Simulated scan of single mutants.
Amino acid sequence: MVQKNIAVVTGASSGIGAATARRLAKEGFHVVAAARRADRLEALIAELGSGSAVACDVTSDDSVAALAAEVDRLDGNLTLLVNNAGGARGADAVAEGSVADWQWMYDVNVLGTLRVTKALLPALESSGAGTVVTVGSTAAFVVYEGGGGYTAAKHAQTALVGTLRLELAGKPVRVVEIDPGMVRTDEFALNRLGDQAKADAVYAGVREPLVADDIADCIAWAATRPHHVNVDRLVVRPIAQAAQHKVVRE
């Protein structure tokens, strides 16, 4: 009997994470959907008709350890981790920056990636064909006014990913980074800005910003290449966005 391949997706309760869980289920993975909002995870798994829902807060060592224990109990090989949990809070200038917001962004985007990767790496390596996909951002490469906290966190996250790839060279684990530009989801801009009108203004006049399914497609494509093929970094933007600061609005 062929053992099933297991994929863990963090931040799976909405947006890119939920879209990725749906796409990977179609690719034949047993998806472990992990996030804080257990009710949303249960609904997602019910929709998929398979998989596992595990409540997990990536800012908690104990919660991540419990996630790893749940994965260990499953019948199958953990071959894919998608570090998707992340987010932004606030758009303050550095001079008025909220230390609490900056600390939260670092803890979720950087230390959350570290915690989950550390916890699941032994199983990924023992599978003989593991892949770690981390969802970063084009904010990892360019800074902009009002984005100091988020760009700092995403710069740190991409440094973590690049270092991990070097350290795993020669081992059967690929390290992939997906860096989206402007992606319109239900919650990212709203959570960051705290106001629906301000969130809507981010995408105002932009023809066809990316959506969660676009990024899920990129993740699935990179993860399903032959295992000797490593997509180190995939930067993806809508055609209306030529760079972080260059967005065409109609």
Rank of each mutant, 00 (worst) to 15 (best):
G86W: 01
G86Y: 01
G86E: 00
G86M: 01
G87C: 06
G87V: 09
R89I: 12
R89F: 05
G90W: 01
G90I: 06
A91Y: 03
A91P: 04
D92K: 12
D92G: 09
A93L: 15
V94Y: 05
V94G: 06
V94Q: 05
A95F: 08
E96M: 10
E96S: 15
E96W: 08
G97M: 15
G97A: 15
V99N: 07
A100Q: 10
D101W: 02
D101T: 09
Q103D: 13
Q103I: 05
Y106N: 09
Y106F: 14
Y106R: 09
Y106I: 06
V108G: 03
V108T: 11
N109H: 11
V110A: 11
G112S: 07
G112D: 01
T113L: 08
T113C: 06
T113G: 09
T113Y: 06
L114C: 04
R115Q: 07
R115Y: 05
T117P: 00
T117Q: 00
K118N: 08
L120A: 02
L120F: 06
L120G: 00
P122S: 15
A123T: 07
L124F: 04
L124P: 00
S127R: 12
S127K: 12
G128Y: 04
A129E: 12
A129L: 10
G130A: 11
G130T: 04
V133R: 04
V133M: 07
V135W: 01
V135Y: 02
G136R: 04
G136I: 02
S137A: 10
T138P: 03
A140G: 03
V143P: 03
E145H: 13
G146Q: 08
G147M: 10
Y150I: 14
T151V: 12
A152T: 10
A153F: 02
K154Q: 11
H155D: 02
Q157H: 03
A159W: 00
V161A: 03
T163M: 08
L164M: 11
L166N: 11
L166F: 01
E167F: 03
A169G: 09
A169C: 10
G170S: 09
P172L: 02
V175E: 02
E177N: 14
I178K: 09
I178V: 14
I178T: 07
D179G: 11
D179W: 04
G181Q: 04
M182K: 04
V183N: 01
V183Y: 02
D186C: 07
F188Q: 13
A189N: 09
A189Q: 10
N191C: 14
N191F: 09
N191A: 15
N191H: 13
R192P: 04
R192E: 05
G194A: 13
D195R: 15
Q196L: 13
A197D: 09
A197Q: 11
A199G: 08
A199H: 06
D200V: 11
A201M: 14
V202A: 09
V202S: 10
V202G: 11
Y203A: 10
G205A: 07
V206N: 10
R207E: 01
E208H: 12
E208F: 05
P209W: 00
L210M: 10
V211K: 08
V211N: 02
A212E: 00
A212V: 01
D213A: 15
D214G: 10
I215T: 06
D217T: 15
D217K: 13
C218A: 15
A220M: 07
A222R: 11
A223P: 14
P226D: 13
P226C: 13
H228I: 14
